[in-house]
Design a protein around this nucleic acid. Structure first.
Lengths: 226, 226
DNA sequence: ACAAAAGTGTTGAGAGTACACCCATGC
DNA sequence: GCATGGGTGTACTCTCAACACTTTTGT
C-alpha cells in the first residue's frame, strides 16, 4: 500500500517452489531474510510483482535471482490469499513451482548457505506464513504430474542412464519400481533415445540416453469415468 | 487504485465460469453490463475482491449474485494477469469455475435474458477482455476432470437415469459412448445406487439412480510414466 | 575370479473394446 | 401390435504386474 495509507487494495506477491533432486530425496530451495512479516524464518523465494511484469515473468525473475538459472520448467500452481486479521496488510500470493536439473543445483552458492540452501522435502524446517501448505501443494502436483507428463526429465541432466532415471522416479514417487517393467515402459513410450556414450562406474558401463526434444508425450490416462 | 492515484498496485478481481448442461450442449452463464473496460460485451460474472473475503468466498458471492445458487461445485482455475499498456489500470483476475445442476439452471431469471443468460459453449458471442481464453481454459479443465473424478454428477439433478448420465458425458466430452460399456463401467465403479423410482417417458420406464454421497471416487489413472 | 551394476523375456490376470438382441410401456 | 427407449452378455485384445538370471566391466 502507499505510504500515506490511502490505498488498501491487496498487494500481489509471486512465490516459487523450486524442486531439485538430491542423492536420496527430493529437495526444495528455501531462503531466509525475506522482508516483511517473515520473522526470520525460512521461506520459499518470492516478492512483489513488478508493474510491467507478467506473473510468469515475475516468477522467472525470482528464480533467476536466487539460483542464476533460466529456462527451467516453470508452471503456475495456485493462488493463495486468506484474509489476515488486518486487511490493510492483505497479500495475495500467486504461487509457481519450478524444477531444476540435478547438475544445475550446484549453481546455488554454498558460501551463503545460511541465506539460501536446499532442504530435503521430508525434513523441512518450520516455514514462514502459509509456506508449508504451498510446498505441500506443490509436491502433490509434482508427483501427480510426473505420472502423466514428461516432467521427470526436468530433474535430470541432459544425458542420463536408465538406472538414474528410475532412481529419480523412485525418489519423487516414494516407492520402488520394477527394473524390467520400468525400462520396457519408458522405452516403449518413445520419449528418450540412446546416445553413443556410456557412463563408467563400478560395474558394467551404462548406456546414456537423452530426452527427445521432439517427443510428444501423449497423455493417455485411463478414465475413471466412464 | 485510490481516487488520488497515489497507489498503483494492481487490483484483484475474482471471475467465475459457470457451466450448466443444456439439451444438446454444454452451456456457460454470461452477463453484460459489468462496469469498467468491458465495452458492453458479454463477460463471465465477476468483480472486485472484498477486503475481508477469501478468494473462494468472493467467487461464491458472485455465483450467488448472478444465479441465486449456493453450494455448487466451485474450484479455483487459474490466475490471469498480463500487464496492460497502462500499468495504473492493471487488474489481476483469479478465475474460478462452477458447475450448476440441470434443474438449477432455471433459477436464472429469463425475464432479464438481455443482461444474464446461458450460452452454448460451442457458439459463444465475442467476449470482453481475455474472457474467451478463460472459458476455453475452464472447458479443458472440466473435460479433463470429468474423466478422473466424479464431477459429472454435479451437472445432473439429484436423481437421474443412466441414459441421462450417459448423455451428459457425451455432451461434455463431445464423443459418443457405447451404452453397454458405459453402464458396466459406471455401475462397477460403485458410485451410484438405484432408487425405487422410475422415470416414465415414451418407451419403457427407466430406473432412477442417485449419486452415493459416501462414494469415494478413487482415481486410479494409468500412468504414462513410468 | 569376484564384486558390482547393467541388461534382458515370459506368463497369468484384469480391463478395455466391439458388437446385436430382447423387454416393458404408451398409444 | 407397433413404436420408443431401456436393459442385457460374450469374445478378443491389450496392458499391467510379478518374477531371476546373464553380461560386462574394474580390481
Amino acid at each position: 500500500m502507499s505510504a500515506d495509507g490511502s490505498c488498501i487494495c491487496p498487494r500481489i506477491t509471486v512465490d516459487v517452489v523450486i524442486f531439485g533432486l538430491g542423492d536420496e530425496s527430493l529437495q526444495v530451495l528455501l531462503v531466509t531474510g525475506r522482508p516483511g512479516a517473515y520473522q526470520g524464518r525460512w521461506a520459499i523465494p518470492g516478492g512483489f510483482l513488478g508493474e510491467r511484469e507478467s506473473l510468469k515473468e515475475a516468477a522467472a525473475r525470482k528464480l533467476e535471482e536466487e539460483t542464476g538459472l533460466t529456462d527451467l520448467f516453470l508452471e503456475q500452481l495456485y493462488t493463495f490469499g486468506e484474509p489476515p486479521r488486518d486487511p490493510s496488510q492483505r497479500v495475495i500470493t500467486v504461487a509457481y513451482y519450478a524444477v531444476a536439473p540435478a547438475n544445475a543445483m550446484r549453481c546455488v552458492d554454498s558460501a551463503q548457505a545460511d541465506r539460501v540452501r536446499w532442504w530435503p522435502c521430508d525434513a523441512l524446517p518450520g516455514l514462514a506464513l502459509d509456506h508449508a501448505e504451498i510446498v505441500s501443494y506443490a509436491l502433490t502436483r509434482l508427483r501427480y504430474k510426473l505420472e502423466y507428463t514428461a516432467v521427470g526429465f526436468e530433474l535430470l541432466p541432459e544425458t542420463f542412464t536408465l538406472s538414474e532415471l528410475q532412481a529419480a522416479y523412485e525418489i519423487v514417487l516414494g516407492e520402488p519400481l520394477d527394473k524390467r517393467n520400468f525400462r520396457r515402459k519408458i522405452l516403449s513410450a518413445d520419449v528418450i533415445e540412446p546416445t553413443a556414450e556410456y557412463r563408467l562406474g563400478e560395474g558394467r558401463p551404462a548406456r546414456l540416453y537423452r530426452y527427445r526434444a521432439d517427443a510428444v508425450a501423449e497423455v493417455k490416462a485411463r478414465r475413471l469415468f466412464p
